[in-house]
Design a protein around this nucleic acid. Structure first.
Lengths: 335, 335
DNA sequence: TGATATCATGAAAGTGCTTTCATGAAAGTT
DNA sequence: AACTTTCATGAAAGCACTTTCATGATATCA
């Protein structure tokens, strides 16, 4: 009667109630084959009776692992990042791992995370999304043997899921050129905090390359940078008000492409006739608005990241891997 | 020299290196005033030297708190839910709490979580979003003294952030009536899994009430249910092809309202002239597409939930609270 | 100067589990 | 019948901290 009242029965209670030792209870739970069937039966019945559930932290302590993997990400609620998060969550859902999300909104934050997370030992693995990791950080992560997978920012010493931003920019440019455009512009990202990475510069580089190959140039006046959100600023207005404005624009992100699309339409421009627009990312809403874009399969990148992480957790001596996500041009109605 | 090589110095290493006992080290860290200034100085110097960081889980175990709060949510990557998540994350960011996300995608899942999370005791608090909680579940959560805040689904015995769906439906209906509409329809949610809650029925009830007050009725033919996503199914097509179709439709969620908007436009209908549309939620993209809607301030609900949770964590004997989020009609271009 | 209060410190218990190692019984072998 | 394996089980150590309680050393008071 005492046991049934106890709100938190421990393994000791189970042992006592069943007349066995805690070692046997533990075995029945974790290595059932090491226990006789009869005993196993008995243990299970008692467990059900008194409602025993192993305490996670005690288990973690003894096991030297925590059953938790951390995800550190900036803008984790931005559409594209959410898709990634979904991939991670799905990848983790079939395992017994929990997902701890560390939103980072300042440079202090990330430094702090990288410095203390490995030390407090409260995580089995770490997925770092779209954040620059210094050699120092990388060394620290390795020294403290916390398995880490980087998404988007590559580091030679760490597992990485890479996006070939250069290639993506090249694809976008080539596509526009093939469509006959000769005056093309670029919409980049402005005002990104210093701790975030800047993939748009590589997208721009690839874009430039494609133009060069076709003997075209990208005039300074055709390059515009705007904040990473739906509401763009006046610099975009100006670009569209140019006497000789571009006939096509490659936006470094879908979010901005959508902002651009809206402004263009407000100005009475027909898309794609007057102005072709191609984005990058393929966020969920891209399909809704019919945005032509370069898909980088965010969901898949997240899922891949956890698969990579899990495989390393199982076999820690595996070589560091650098996977590349396949880019894909999705043709819709804006270009 | 041994200490400096050890990648994970423990409190014992600090004790040995400083010639003090682990008890004193612990005190110097947690109750500095209980230790002589000289000793404190000495301890700190050694800690810095060998790079000691207390292991979080060991600390949690001894302290009986974990520094972690759990968020269980369905569809946690759907636009509206993400906004809520952002509110929760922001609310938590100024604290030392970590956010563990438990995505639920099956009924088994939620039952399982509610039954085991409190028992494994690896969480200080729990925020349950948009999930039905039975009396049994509620009792269990209380018995096992895990502080819980429910969002959207109210329970008398637990803290709740409520949304007045009935009132929202009423507001939507009243607005359409005031605009002169007499033939109004309703777009509800179909195919929601059984573990999710169904706020749309209350939204519908409120909507009906407003119609009744104006002497109007809602014909069966004007009620349509479609999946909770951007791509709606043919039932919506049929509604719009009715000989005498409604002049206005209240969609139970913004996501569906946007789907409806797209279909209407594809059919050549002018919105709002031919068909007025009003949604519910005010997701981020609602502003982009100019959707008139009932805002339920998802972000705020999340933030409020953590504030409520934190205040209860500090003062556990506080009475259970039931907060109501203020709804707000946001007039844009679709109605 | 002897008795008492104050204070910094250390020893040890507690936290709830896993796992190694030892033990004794049953089964198999010759 | 004596001996070796095999197998289920229990005792106990280990995980890395916090905190209570006891102790001995000072400081305080009469």
């Amino acid at each position: 009667m005492k046991q049934t009242k106890d709100p938190f029965p421990t393994i000791y209670d189970v042992a006592q109630a069943s007349g066995l030792s805690i070692a046997t209870i533990s075995r029945a739970l974790n290595n059932p084959e090491k226990v006789s069937p009869a005993t196993r039966e008995r243990v299970m019945r008692v467990i059900d009776e008194i409602g025993f559930v192993p305490k996670a932290d005690a288990r973690a302590r003894a096991l030297q692992n925590t059953g938790r993997i951390g995800v550190v990400s900036p803008f984790f609620t931005a559409p594209s990042f959410v898709q990634r998060l979904r991939g991670i969550a799905d990848g983790l859902s079939s395992t017994h791992y929990e997902m701890v999300v560390y939103p980072v909104d300042s440079g202090e934050h990330i430094k702090h995370y990288i410095q203390t997370l490995p030390l407090t030992r409260s995580l089995d693995g770490l997925i770092i999304v779209s954040m620059a990791v210094s050699d120092d950080d990388a060394r620290r992560l390795r020294d403290y043997q916390i398995e880490t997978v980087l998404i988007e920012f590559p580091h030679p010493k760490l597992n990485t899921i890479e996006i070939d931003d250069f290639e993506g920019g090249l694809m976008a440019g080539q596509y526009l050129i093939d469509k006959g455009h000769r005056q093309v512009g670029f919409l980049g990202v402005a005002g990104l905090p210093e701790f975030a990475i800047h993939p748009e510069s590589r997208r721009l580089a690839g874009f430039r390359k494609s133009l060069a190959r076709a003997g075209l140039t990208l005039p300074e006046a055709y390059i515009c940078n705007a904040p990473y959100r739906l509401e763009l600023d006046e610099s975009v207005q100006k670009l569209l008000e140019l006497a000789e404005r571009p006939t096509a624009i490659f936006a470094a992100t879908d979010l901005q492409a959508m902002g651009l699309l809206k402004i263009a339409r407000e100005k009475g421009l027909c898309v794609p006739e007057d102005l072709a627009i191609i984005g990058f990312d393929d966020i969920d809403f891209a399909d809704y608005v019919g945005l032509t874009t370069i898909r980088q399969h965010m969901y898949q990148s997240g899922k891949l990241a956890v698969e990579l992480l899990l495989s390393r957790l199982k076999q820690p001596d595996l070589d560091v891997q650098h996977l590349k996500i396949q880019l894909e041009l999705v043709e819709r109605n804006t270009a």
